[in-house]
Design a protein around this nucleic acid. Structure first.
Lengths: 109, 109
DNA sequence: GACAGGTGTCAGAGAATTCTGTCACGTGAT
DNA sequence: ATCACGTGACAGAATTCTCTGACACCTGTC
């Protein structure tokens, strides 16, 4: 199986946003650092920071702090090669492992 | 090619919810009608109605009003056999056809 | 020191989504 | 007529998400 239902939901939530979809699109072509990315997307750094954090929490992208030649700390982000195959069956499979924060999920048939 | 960026975003938004994921999971096994589904999911009919509308708007499920043997009008829902393959590349491809609806939606096709 | 360009974080307003009420309509059985 | 069971739709509260502004830190250069 692919992922647990919780992880799937987190990934879908992370991708259900225009900006974050665009971020993944850009990073899948070329890795980039925060400030430049903000300029290319036309959004503020704090906002981009939040979106990046969401994507990273979902495991879709990964960031690494690096030092440029002139000593500036730059955080580069790149996509992780995820592959989500979404079908009614795979969703049904993932739902079985969804954490239920309402009540105990029994074996309802 | 899969779908347009707009449609992809709509599908992802529709699936980025615990309840709606569960609905798809149940319906992929067995088609069902609204009231019974509400009972199985433990949610109110109005709420379920909203979630179903969202899923149907995204093209993930489809409803049809049918008449039972005893004359009651029942709306049955079933999943449409969607297949979304999500990878960094497919996202990048879909992003190209994302509509820029920041404000006045002008020249959309 | 002052500046530029990189990083991150916080509080709070604004907007969208989620959820709960309650209501109305239709049909068949009591 | 009243009840049970199906449908749909409407306001309004509660919650979450989105976004902006201002702040603090670090390093190298003028």
């Amino acid at each position: 199986m692919d992922v647990t239902g919780d992880d799937l939901l987190k990934m879908l939530t992370a991708l259900s946003n225009q900006h974050r979809l665009r971020i993944v699109g850009l990073l899948s072509v070329e890795r980039d650092y925060v400030s430049r990315l903000a300029g290319r997307l036309g959004m503020s750094r704090p906002l981009l920071h939040m979106h990046l954090a969401r994507l990273e929490a979902a495991g879709l992208i990964e960031g690494s702090l690096e030092l440029s030649a002139d000593g500036k700390a730059m955080k580069f982000f790149e996509v992780t090669p995820f592959a989500l195959h979404l079908t009614p069956e795979s969703v049904a499979e993932a739902v079985k492992t969804l954490s239920d924060d309402r009540r105990g999920d029994g074996d309802e048939k």
